[in-house]
Design a protein around this nucleic acid. Sequence first.
DNA 1: ATTGTACCTGACTAAATAGTCGGGTATAAT
DNA 2: ATTATACCCGACTATTTAGTCAGGTACAAT
Lengths: 217, 217
Amino acid sequence: MEKQITPRQKQLLSILYEYIQDSGYPPTFEEMRQKLDVSSNQSIKDLLEKLKSGGFIKKGESQARGITILPLGYEALGQPSLAPFVGATSAGVPIQAVSFDGEWMEMPATHYDTKIERLKANVYVLRVYGDSMINAGINDGDHVLVQEKKEFSSGDIVLAYDGDDATIKRFMSVNEPPYLYLKPENPKYKIILFRDSISMAGKVMAVLKSRQWVPVS
Amino acid sequence: MEKQITPRQKQLLSILYEYIQDSGYPPTFEEMRQKLDVSSNQSIKDLLEKLKSGGFIKKGESQARGITILPLGYEALGQPSLAPFVGATSAGVPIQAVSFDGEWMEMPATHYDTKIERLKANVYVLRVYGDSMINAGINDGDHVLVQEKKEFSSGDIVLAYDGDDATIKRFMSVNEPPYLYLKPENPKYKIILFRDSISMAGKVMAVLKSRQWVPVS
DNA sequence: ATTGTACCTGACTAAATAGTCGGGTATAAT
DNA sequence: ATTATACCCGACTATTTAGTCAGGTACAAT
């Protein structure tokens, strides 16, 4: 039985969202009271309590402006959600294997489980360095959403390990030599033949284009 | 005579920045006092006053957690800065001409004047819709940084108006027919010959790749 | 008909938080 | 030597802000 957001709750949630967007900090009870056009703090407190128990927001007790919108809240508003950000991998030279460090990143809500701060099984985000996948639309500094998997199809873009080194490449399985290999999507780089030290951890489901200014010519 | 930031001020500024980054709201005097390891509110108030008069932060009087870091502050921290966000233009179908609506966007600090909330002469940001410039690396949903200009060189990517309609195209000037025209960077679209109703307002200096998830194949 | 839930009211209190007062030190500039 | 500036101290007050109390209405479900 899903915790459902009521229209009134959603109204307050979007007031919260907008206030934070243009002030940089959350509103007070009084400010919310005015925007919602009710005459008492209690109404605000009740609603916040509901939003909190529904997992839409986090709230510091007895704390001025201590409200944070949680992933589930953004989801209810139709905003992007979060994934654990586990580190960096490389699309060029392989680098040290990744590990979760507590950061979060926006991710497509479809990959997000409805439970608060709980992800769908084994989905995570990596930052990609290097240019070995540019022809697949993955650039230096972009992030990829990786879904853990055990079975792969030829043509899948995968997160592969060579020992402790992690890398993003296209997995290829063909009926003629070299049969099994990893293919960089950049003519500058050579294919990597499968060997015992190589394993695949997951499939790249989506790319988050990094928000960076690039000069034009 | 530039208002210079002192080491102590910068220290507080980065405490502010980090706190906001991971809480979603600014700290109280007390919290700043602890992090800065001083024993009085007055020290914090003094420093905030300096940061404020230097144009690094904005601060609501008598307001709990009412601090906002201003563009100049981000600049002092080496973070990206802001440009006025004037609206949307189209890289496909031209749309209604743009106008400033008070929003701000991150922009490369080099284009930002040192005065608070004042941009270098005539620089602004537009959101681009459509796919007519994909081969120049400008995609649907990206933002472009436009520098107002009067003189253009052949090959410049420009913001052009056809009456009230704004569009982004590559400006071409050649010695053979059709001499002067606007060229979309997508074979799907046709070139636009110059006519009296067409004028050019500025040159695209940089593209902010929009932060969007795109599925991979 | 009663129970529960979502929402509301207005007056009140408690706690958190910003700001003040009246000083101080150390350092560089005039 | 004086002045100005950047920074600090500790005790205090004023204001803002969250939270409580003791209710109420409207509506759907049992």
